[in-house]
Design a protein around this nucleic acid. Structure first.
Length: 264
DNA sequence: TGAGTATGTTCAG
DNA sequence: TGAACCTACTCAT
């Protein structure tokens, strides 16, 4: 499931497979039939991403994809499989096929809408030129909690529920502190951890946040195969650091996981 | 087989 | 703030 690291990974995969080639596009599901017809038999001139948004450029026509909660691409070397009925967009060239299912958004942008979308997003920690000050300037004025602000894509682009919970834990930061009351040192720590964890996730294509020495023996054996976390989805389990029970609360309609002892 | 859940966003009220 | 939307997976019946 997609947060910023997944989108970066998908951008890399699609650049490798499709950039500079003529692609055939279709919409087996039918809901993107017009858009697919528009880009069919055209050259993919660029693949870009920011936060959780992915863009395939065909000169001035840009396909914007947001995977939402369920969306995903399946990309493979051509083997001629039939697309599933739910496939919103299939793109192929002579070597690769990529199927998109279940996205929240799959639409064609012109350059103006593309720039508007890019400009509406906060800095993306995965970008080498990301400006952390831009995020800090919004956070330090906000009456929302840092737990809410981290999920706000106009503050920081690419962070979701997992990458909210884990950096907050690693920075020993309570999610309930207001943005305007957050210490600058804590923000720096949160930004650093977000960058590091997203980079690891983008390289591996999966979320890995736990240091080896904090894994159980069973988890060490599986490390690299399964997803592990400090607090995310570990409600009631002992904290890996202090053994207190991990808590879950609703924050902004999403489940927030945190350790009440480490993150006072 | 159906209910419940999920790493998300947008829009109406 | 809550509902709606998109799909796939797990678990209980």
């Amino acid at each position: 499931m997609p947060e910023g690291h997944s989108i970066r990974h998908l951008a890399t995969v699609h650049s490798y497979g499709f950039l500079g080639t003529t692609v055939q596009a279709s919409s087996p599901q039918g809901r993107f039939a017009e858009g697919a017809a528009l880009i069919n038999n055209r050259t993919m001139t660029d693949v870009t991403c920011k936060g959780k948004h992915l863009f395939f450029h065909f000169d001035h026509d840009i396909v914007h994809v947001h995977l939402g909660l369920y969306g995903w691409f399946t990309t493979r070397k051509n083997k001629g499989q039939d697309a599933k009925e739910s496939t919103r967009l299939r793109i192929t060239n002579k070597d690769y096929t990529s199927d998109l299912v279940g996205p929240t958004a799959c639409e064609v942008f012109d350059n103006q809408r593309y720039l508007a979308k890019i400009n509406s997003l906060g800095p993306d920690p995965l970008k080498t030129d990301a400006d952390a000050e831009e995020a800090w300037n919004k956070i330090k004025k906000s009456k929302k909690t840092i737990g809410q602000l981290l999920m706000d894509q106009s503050v920081i682009a690419g962070i979701g529920n997992v990458y909210r919970a884990e950096p907050l834990f690693l920075s020993s930061q309570s999610p309930f502190v207001l943005g305007k009351e957050l210490h600058r040192g804590k923000f720096d720590s949160l930004w650093r951890d977000s960058v590091r964890l997203l980079q690891v996730g983008a390289e591996d294509g999966k979320i890995k946040t736990v240091a080896e020495h904090h894994l159980t023996n069973d988890e060490v054996k599986l490390h690299g195969c399964t997803q592990t976390s400090y607090v995310y989805k570990r409600t009631g389990n002992p904290c890996r650091v202090c053994s207190s029970a991990v808590q879950a609360d609703d924050m902004g309609g999403r489940t927030l996981y945190w350790c009440p002892n480490c993150q006072r």
